[in-house]
Write a protein that binds this DNA or RNA. Structure first.
Lengths: 344, 344
DNA sequence: CTGAAAGCGCTAACAC
DNA sequence: GTGTTAGCGCTTTCAG
C-alpha cells in the first residue's frame, strides 16, 4: 500500500511545468530535461533528486512543447465504421500492433454511432494525426482534402482521390464462391446484400462485392435472387427468415459478410433447414467468429493480419517518401481465398 | 526508385507553416489564423484567398503549436489486452463513442501482442494522453506513477493505487450463476478458469471471479471441479474435451468468459452432449457473440455500453475535479445480471 | 557537469 | 480589417 504524499491532489491544479521542478530542485530547466530524458552529462545524484521532485510534483512533460521542438512522433488515425462487427477490431488489432512496433500511436474513431460519417471521423481525427487509415464508405476526396498533404489510405473504396488505397479483387472472390455453390449443384441461389432494406424490389446490388457476385451469377446463367438487409446479424436473420417462406427451394446462400452469415445460419436453423445438406452458406471476411458457429462457416477469407501489415507498410512508404501518393505502388489489391469449413 | 517531378508534391517536403501561407498571400500570420479558424474580423475575400493558398500549399496547422497555445483538447488512452476477444472492442466502442461526444479523442493500445504488458501499454500511451482507461491486469501502481497527476482508471483490478476504478461484484455474479445451475439439479459442476494451463493440479482459482465462483460452490457443499485453460475459445475447447473424457458425468459448466464458453459449446457438441439437456453452460460477459452461437449462450452479462459510459463519466469527473482521486465516488462497482438464453 | 540563450508554430491580446 | 507583440513549455545549441 502506498500513500499519496501530503493529501490527494483533488482539483486539477495547474499542471506543473519544467520550471516548477527546476525551482524546487534549485537547478536550471536544462538540468531537469537531462534528468528526465536520461541524457548524459549530469551527476547521478542530481538526476535522482530531480526525478524524485518531479514525481512528487506530479510533473509530466507537455506533449505539445516536446512535439513542437522535436518534431512529431507519428500518430495515425484509424477510422472505422463499427467496432461491433468483429471484422473491424480484427483489422484494427493488426494495425495497432504493427504501428506500435514502429513507435507510432493510433487514434481510433468508430464513427458508427450517432449518424456520423467516415468524413466526420476524418475531420475529427485530422487535428491530431499525421495520417489516416480508414474504411470511410466514400468521401475519399473530401477526406484527403481535409488532411492536406498528410496521407490517407482508404480501404474498399475507389482509390482515385486518396494517397493510398487497399482494394479487393471481388471478381475473384465472387468466382470462387459462386463456383463452389454451382459445382455442388446448388440450383436456387440467393445473395444477401448489405444495404438499406429497400425491399427486394431492386434487382441490382449496390456494393462492389454485390455487383461482382451478380456478374458471376449472371455469367453462368444460373437462376438467383437478390436479398437486402442491414449490415447486422439480426437483420440478416430476419431477411432470410422471410425469404425462406417465399422461396423454400433455396439451396445456397452467399452472404455479404460473416457477421450477416451468422444471422443467416440462425434463420436456417429456425426454419428447420439442415446446413449444408438443405442449404449451403458462404460468408465473406474470414473473421474468427466463423469457427465458433455451428456448423462452422465456410467463407471467403481475407488475411486480416496481412492486411494490417500492408496498410501500415504502405503508410510507412508514403510517410518516408518511398512510395509516392497515387502511384502504382500506392494502390494495393488483395485477394480472398476460399476457406472450406462446414457450411458449404 | 521513382522521383516525382516538381509539381506533384510527392516527397514529404518540409511541412509548410503558417508563415509560408502568410507570405504566399502577402498578409500577416494573424490573418491566416483568422482565415483558417473561421474567426471574425476578416474580409470574406481575404479568407477565401488565404484558404485557397493554404490548400494549395498543403498547409495544415501544427497540432503541437496549437495545443501549446490553446491548452490540450483532451486525449484519452485506452489500454486493452486483446481486441480479438469481442468483449474488449464492445467496451472500446462505447468508450470511443462517448469520448467523441465530449470532443475528446481516444488513443488505443492493444497490448496483447509481442509479450507486452499493461504497463508497457501505459508507458507507450503516456506521452500522448491526458488520462488512461485500461484493463491492465495488474500494475496499477506503476502505471499511475508513470502518469503522474493524470488520472488512471483501472478496470477489474485492485483499485488502491489508481485515481479511479471500476470493479465487478463477482460474489453476486457467482451466486446467480451457481444457484442457477444448482437449482436445475446439476450435480457435477465444473468451473473453467482462465490462466496458464498449469494442469488441473492447482485446486484454487487465481482470478477474482474464479475465487468468487469457488467460494459459492464450496459454500453450498456442492461437488465441483476446477479446470484451467488459456483465454481463448480454442484452448477452452481443448481443455473441456479432455476433461469430458475423465469426467463424463459433468452436467454443468461455468465458464470464465463468453469467448471461452463458445469453445466449451464446441467441445460439448463434438462429444455428442446435448446442451443444456446433458450439460448446461453459463458464460460471463454478455457479449453479442452469445446470441449467434447454437444454442444461444446463457451468460452473466455486463452492460458494456453502460460500463463505457461509467468510465467516461468518471474520467470526466476526475478531469474536472468534480470527483477526487481515490475518493469513494472514484470507485465504482458494477453488477452482472443473469441472461437466460438456451444453454442453461 | 551545469546554465543561458534561442526558437519550434501557433494564437491571445492589443495596437493601428 | 489587418498587423504587431508576446509567450505557451520544451529541447537544442553554445558558454561557462
Amino acid at each position: 500500500m502506498s500513500h499519496t504524499p501530503s493529501g490527494n491532489p483533488a482539483k486539477p491544479a495547474k499542471r506543473s511545468t519544467i520550471l516548477d521542478v527546476a525551482a524546487a530542485a534549485g537547478v536550471s530547466r536544462q538540468t531537469v530535461t537531462r534528468a528526465m530524458n536520461g541524457m548524459p552529462g549530469i551527476k547521478e545524484s542530481t538526476r535522482q533528486r530531480v526525478r524524485q521532485l518531479a514525481q512528487e510534483l506530479g510533473y509530466t512533460p507537455s506533449r505539445f512543447a516536446k512535439g513542437l521542438v522535436q518534431g512529431a512522433r507519428t500518430s495515425v488515425g484509424l477510422a472505422i465504421p463499427d467496432l461491433t462487427n468483429p471484422y473491424f477490431p480484427a483489422f484494427a488489432s493488426s494495425v495497432v500492433e504493427l504501428a506500435t512496433l514502429r513507435g507510432w500511436h493510433v487514434v481510433v474513431d468508430d464513427y458508427g454511432h450517432g449518424g456520423r460519417s467516415g468524413l466526420d471521423a476524418v475531420e475529427h481525427l485530422a487535428p491530431h494525426v499525421d495520417a489516416v487509415i480508414g474504411y470511410l464508405g466514400g468521401y475519399a476526396q473530401q477526406a484527403q482534402a481535409a488532411l492536406g498533404r498528410r496521407p490517407l489510405i482508404v480501404l474498399d473504396e475507389s482509390p482515385d482521390d486518396a494517397a493510398g488505397s487497399i482494394n479487393f479483387d471481388y471478381d475473384h472472390a465472387a468466382r470462387l464462391a459462386v463456383d463452389q455453390l454451382v459445382h455442388a449443384n446448388r440450383r436456387s441461389i440467393a445473395y444477401l446484400e448489405a444495404g438499406s432494406a429497400t425491399g427486394a424490389a431492386s434487382q441490382l446490388p449496390s456494393t462492389v462485392r454485390g455487383k461482382a457476385v451478380a456478374g458471376r451469377l449472371e455469367g453462368l446463367g444460373t437462376s438467383w435472387s437478390l436479398l437486402v438487409a442491414e449490415e447486422t446479424a439480426e437483420a440478416a436473420k430476419a431477411a432470410v427468415a422471410g425469404f425462406l417462406r417465399e422461396r423454400p427451394e433455396t439451396d445456397g446462400i452467399l452472404v455479404f459478410n460473416d457477421l450477416m452469415a451468422a444471422g443467416v445460419l440462425k434463420a436456417l436453423s429456425d426454419a428447420g433447414r439442415m446446413v449444408p445438406e438443405d442449404c449451403a452458406v458462404i460468408g465473406m471476411d474470414g473473421i474468427p467468429l466463423g469457427v465458433l458457429l455451428t456448423p462452422q462457416l465456410t467463407t471467403m477469407a481475407l488475411d486480416l493480419r496481412e492486411m494490417g501489415r500492408a496498410a501500415v507498410e504502405l503508410l510507412d512508404g508514403l510517410l518516408t517518401g518511398t512510395v509516392s501518393p497515387g502511384s502504382e505502388a500506392s494502390r494495393l489489391t488483395l485477394k480472398h481465398r476460399l476457406v472450406l469449413r462446414e457450411t458449404a
